[in-house]
Design a protein around this nucleic acid. Sequence first.
DNA 1: CGATATTGGTTGTTTTTGTAACTAACAACA
DNA 2: TGTTGTTAGTTACAAAAACAACCAATATCG
Lengths: 141, 141
Amino acid sequence: MGDIDLRAFTPYLLAMAAETTSLGFQSTYKAQHGMLRTEWRVLFHLGQYGPLTAKTICDRARLHKTKVSRAVAALEAKRFLTRSEDPQDRRSDVLELTASGQKVFRALTEEAARFDAALMERFSAEERRILRQCLTRLAQL
Amino acid sequence: MGDIDLRAFTPYLLAMAAETTSLGFQSTYKAQHGMLRTEWRVLFHLGQYGPLTAKTICDRARLHKTKVSRAVAALEAKRFLTRSEDPQDRRSDVLELTASGQKVFRALTEEAARFDAALMERFSAEERRILRQCLTRLAQL
DNA sequence: CGATATTGGTTGTTTTTGTAACTAACAACA
DNA sequence: TGTTGTTAGTTACAAAAACAACCAATATCG
């Protein structure tokens, strides 16, 4: 019959694992830089892929436009990014990290790398490969 | 060096995968039974492990007591569970699914099994095993 | 061209969550 | 026993998220 143990239900497991792991890293961007999760995601995208418009961030980070809009406003208030008019489309602003935004990005990035390494320490190379592959595919549904 | 691609940061991947996969199942319990995620989790625990006290659910499901308290109130309002005084401890109520609560539990459980099977279809037995193992370990930090 | 629909983005309102303070029952120990 | 400390659970208040309505710029197409 179609019965399933809660502990074997993949979305549940994913939610638990996501919650647990992100909790640890949250303290870094929250406590140290007063950022919210969405802000950190937006910052990450800008740091990683260079100047982007809000729309592009929405698409790439799969975030709703209101979330991005508010995160951008918050990051702007913290002087972590600046807007400049998009010559292609006057509705959009091109968003770009300031020097201090980049500094924070680099710091967080390094911290993230350390954090991830510590997490993955408990898995073999093979397990890591498969885990990443599975997650990537699941995230892209 | 310590640089990391966003797509390789495990907590991020987990969050994306969790979001994507749970979105699909959410429609089942939300649209069809007017339930919230926490309510469905509580219902699941009661259905799976029988009558429990709120405290036990908190511990097992790793949910904060306020969340459970509200979920229980909501499930009670929907007549999916009843409370009865715990003879062992008059502070707690023992929570138990009603007949209709059990019916919903069974329906959702079956739906979950189907959903999970469809998700896992794209992975080999080996991948599934490793994925589950990794997630379980990560969830338990 | 001009009317209409669509898109990027913001703002306002309602839900949901998180945090803290509180009540009642129990436990521990002088 | 009674004083103090914990624990189970609720409630009130603050923060954050989801949802909907909105404005201005741009496509689309007669």
